[in-house]
Deep mutational scan, measured.
Amino acid sequence: MALNTPQITPTKKITVRAIGEELPRGDYQRCPQCDMLFSLPEINSHQSAYCPRCQAKIRDGRDWSLTRLAAMAFTMLLLMPFAWGEPLLHIWLLGIRIDANVMQGIWQMTKQGDAITGSMVFFCVIGAPLILVTSIAYLWFGNRLGMNLRPVLLMLERLKEWVMLDIYLVGIGVASIKVQDYAHIQAGVGLFSFVALVILTTVTLSHLNVEELWERFYPQRPATRRDEKLRVCLGCHFTGYPDQRGRCPRCHIPLRLRRRHSLQKCWAALLASIVLLLPANLLPISIIYLNGGRQEDTILSGIMSLASSNIAVAGIVFIASILVPFTKVIVMFTLLLSIHFKCQQGLRTRILLLRMVTWIGRWSMLDLFVISLTMSLINRDQILAFTMGPAAFYFGAAVILTILAVEWLDSRLLWDAHESGNARFDD
C-alpha cells in the first residue's frame, strides 16, 4: 500500500549564491595573561575582544583620537594649579581661619623630617597626573615632529594605576569627618577644581587605549598563520617573532617567553612588605597634641575612634588600611606557593584573586592621604596640633611594595603550573 505524501511548494523562490571570495581570516594573537594562541577576527570600533580561555580583555573598544586626548590633557593642565594650590577646605580653629590644600599637606610631611613619605604622596597625587598630561601632550606634538614615541607609550600603561586623584578625593571626605570634632569646616574653591580634575582624569584614563596608539604610530604586520613560536610582548602586546637582537619589532624591548626574574622580584617585594606591615600596624601612625597632652593612634585605634562619629567612614578606612593590605599579602603568598608547588586545582579562583588584588591594591594609600591633609588643617603649635607617627613611612612603603609585587608577577606562570593543553579552566 503506497502512502500519498503531499508536496510542499515554497511560496518564495530560494536563491543560492556561491561564495565568490575567501572568507576573511583572523590574525593570530597570544593572550598576555595566559599565553593562549588564538585567531582574533577583525574588530570594529566600539567592540571589545576577550581571550577565549581566561576571559582577559585583549582589545578595548573604547578609543579616543589623539586630538581629543590632547584637549583633555590641556584642560587638566589648566585645572591643576587651582586643584593643588587653592584651598580645598576652610576650618575655623580657636577663632582663626585655616586653609588646607594639597601642596601644603605634602610640605608639612616633608617639613617634619619625613621627606620619603611626603614624596610618596607627591608622586601619586601630583607627579603621576602631571606625567600623564605631559605624556599625552608629548605624543600629540611628537607625532607631528617625527619624534620617538616608544618610551612614552611604554610608560603610559604602567602609569595608570599610580594616578590616585580619586583616592585622594575620598581622603578629603575622611579628613573632614575627623577634623569636624575640633573645628567648623567649609569647602574651599580649590575643592571644585579638584573634583573637576578627578572627573576629567577618570574619563581620560578610561578612554586612553595605549594598544590602539601603538597600532597608529607603529603598525606591524600581524601573524596570519598559526605558529607556536609566536611570542607576545608584555610592553606593547604585539604578537610576532623577535628581531635579530631578540627584541620586539614594535617597542624594541627584549621579547622573552616569560617575564625575567618574575618570581624572585615578586618574592622579594612580598617578604619586604610583610616585614614592614608589622611596625606599620604596631607603631603610632598619627599623633595629636591637645592642650599640651599627647595622644597617639595606631591604624586600628584611629579607626575605632573614627567609628564613634561615623561608622560608615570608619568601615571604608578599615577596608583600605587593614583589610586590603593583608588580603593582598595572603593572596600573593598563596599564588606564589601554588606556582612553586605546581598546583593544578582552583586555577579559576587564583586568576580571579590576582585580578582582584590588581584592582584594589592602590586604595591602601588612602590613610597616607588623610594624614597629609589633616596635617595641613590642624597645626596650632602646642594648643592643638596633628602630626604623623613613625608607622606612616612603614605603611606607605608596604603598600608600594605590594603594588610592585602584583605588577611583577607574570600571570602566565600560573598556567605553566597548571596542566598543559587546557582550553578551559575551572575549579
Results as ranks from 00 to 15, higher is better:
residue 205 L to G: 15
residue 288 I to A: 03
residue 89 L to W: 05
residue 399 V to F: 02
residue 17 R to P: 13
residue 158 R to I: 13
residue 370 V to N: 00
residue 400 I to C: 07
residue 51 C to I: 00
residue 282 L to A: 08
residue 188 G to R: 13
residue 68 R to K: 04
residue 151 P to D: 04
residue 170 V to E: 03
residue 323 L to T: 15
residue 352 L to C: 11
residue 228 E to D: 05
residue 422 N to I: 13
residue 423 A to G: 15
residue 331 V to I: 14
residue 289 Y to A: 01
residue 109 M to V: 07
residue 77 L to V: 14
residue 14 I to A: 13
residue 279 P to T: 13
residue 109 M to N: 05
residue 347 L to R: 06
residue 354 L to I: 13
residue 343 C to I: 11
residue 238 F to Y: 10
residue 157 E to G: 08
residue 174 V to I: 14
residue 102 V to P: 05
residue 119 S to H: 02
residue 419 E to D: 12
residue 420 S to L: 11
residue 27 D to E: 10
residue 115 A to R: 02
residue 286 S to Q: 00
residue 155 M to L: 04
residue 421 G to V: 09
residue 204 T to I: 03
residue 192 F to W: 12
residue 103 M to R: 04
residue 82 F to C: 07
residue 245 R to G: 06
residue 424 R to H: 15
residue 30 R to A: 13
residue 210 V to T: 09
residue 53 R to S: 11
residue 426 D to P: 13
residue 406 V to E: 07
residue 57 K to Y: 09
residue 277 L to I: 10
residue 186 Q to P: 02
residue 77 L to E: 08
residue 188 G to D: 07
residue 20 G to Y: 07
residue 413 L to R: 06
residue 47 Q to D: 14
residue 390 P to F: 06
residue 353 L to Q: 06
residue 363 W to P: 05
residue 235 G to Y: 03
residue 276 L to N: 04
residue 248 C to W: 00
residue 399 V to G: 07
residue 349 T to Y: 10
residue 354 L to T: 09
residue 111 K to A: 08
residue 48 S to Q: 14
residue 368 L to D: 01
residue 141 F to V: 14
residue 239 T to R: 01
residue 355 R to Q: 15
residue 252 H to Q: 03
residue 349 T to G: 13
residue 396 G to V: 02
residue 195 V to C: 10
residue 7 Q to T: 10
residue 302 G to W: 00
residue 345 Q to T: 12
residue 232 V to F: 08
residue 83 A to Q: 04
residue 137 A to M: 09
residue 122 F to K: 07
residue 381 D to Q: 04
residue 105 G to L: 01
residue 65 S to F: 05
residue 8 I to L: 12
residue 207 H to W: 15
residue 106 I to P: 04
residue 97 R to S: 11
residue 420 S to A: 13
residue 263 L to H: 06
residue 14 I to V: 11
residue 229 K to D: 06
residue 176 S to R: 03
residue 245 R to E: 05
residue 86 E to N: 06
residue 149 L to F: 02
residue 11 T to Q: 15
residue 292 G to C: 04
residue 39 S to H: 13
residue 34 C to P: 00
residue 218 Y to P: 03
residue 369 F to I: 03
residue 376 S to M: 13
residue 296 E to D: 05
residue 168 Y to S: 09
residue 233 C to F: 00
residue 393 F to T: 04
residue 266 C to R: 00
residue 413 L to G: 05
residue 120 M to G: 04
residue 424 R to I: 14
residue 28 Y to Q: 12
residue 89 L to C: 10
residue 269 A to T: 04
residue 236 C to H: 00
residue 347 L to N: 15
residue 251 C to T: 00
residue 302 G to V: 10
residue 371 I to P: 04
residue 261 H to I: 02
residue 237 H to S: 11
residue 99 D to G: 08
residue 127 G to D: 02
residue 415 W to C: 10
residue 382 Q to H: 13
residue 219 P to S: 10
residue 421 G to E: 08
residue 423 A to S: 15
residue 342 K to R: 11
residue 342 K to F: 11
residue 416 D to E: 15
residue 402 T to N: 07
residue 362 R to K: 09
residue 373 L to Y: 05
residue 54 C to K: 00
residue 72 M to P: 04
residue 201 T to S: 08
residue 376 S to E: 15
residue 59 R to E: 09
residue 88 L to D: 03
residue 48 S to D: 15
residue 348 R to H: 14
residue 184 H to V: 06
residue 385 A to S: 10
residue 398 A to D: 05
residue 134 T to R: 00
residue 20 G to W: 08
residue 85 G to D: 14
residue 333 F to P: 01
residue 117 T to C: 05
residue 1 M to K: 01
residue 222 P to T: 11
residue 188 G to W: 06
residue 342 K to M: 10
residue 93 L to G: 01
residue 248 C to D: 01
residue 111 K to N: 09
residue 290 L to I: 12
residue 130 L to C: 14
residue 37 L to S: 12
residue 332 M to D: 04
residue 73 A to L: 14
residue 272 A to G: 04
residue 132 L to Y: 05
residue 238 F to K: 14
residue 1 M to L: 02
residue 238 F to S: 07
residue 7 Q to N: 12
residue 110 T to N: 15
residue 178 K to A: 00
residue 37 L to G: 12
residue 426 D to S: 14
residue 139 L to D: 00
residue 378 I to N: 00
residue 114 D to P: 04
residue 61 G to W: 15
residue 192 F to L: 13
residue 62 R to H: 05
residue 274 I to Q: 08
residue 182 Y to S: 12
residue 172 I to K: 02
residue 91 I to Q: 09
residue 228 E to Y: 07
residue 20 G to M: 09
residue 412 R to Q: 01
residue 335 L to W: 04
residue 213 L to S: 12
residue 268 A to C: 05
residue 314 A to E: 02
residue 264 Q to G: 02
residue 301 S to G: 07
residue 24 P to D: 12
residue 112 Q to D: 06
residue 112 Q to F: 03
residue 220 Q to D: 04
residue 212 E to S: 14
residue 135 S to R: 00
residue 213 L to F: 04
residue 144 R to W: 13
residue 19 I to H: 10
residue 353 L to R: 15
residue 244 Q to S: 08
residue 378 I to E: 00
residue 134 T to A: 12
residue 30 R to K: 12
residue 52 P to I: 11
residue 368 L to Q: 05
residue 167 I to G: 05
residue 129 P to V: 08
residue 76 M to D: 03
residue 390 P to A: 09
residue 355 R to W: 14
residue 266 C to E: 02
residue 353 L to Y: 09
residue 355 R to L: 12
residue 400 I to V: 07
residue 317 V to W: 01
residue 63 D to R: 15
residue 23 L to T: 12
residue 312 A to F: 05
residue 349 T to C: 13
residue 199 I to H: 04
residue 17 R to F: 09
residue 60 D to A: 09
residue 154 L to V: 05
residue 316 I to G: 14
residue 78 L to Q: 03
residue 173 G to S: 04
residue 201 T to D: 03
residue 37 L to C: 13
residue 256 R to M: 11
residue 34 C to G: 00
residue 332 M to E: 11
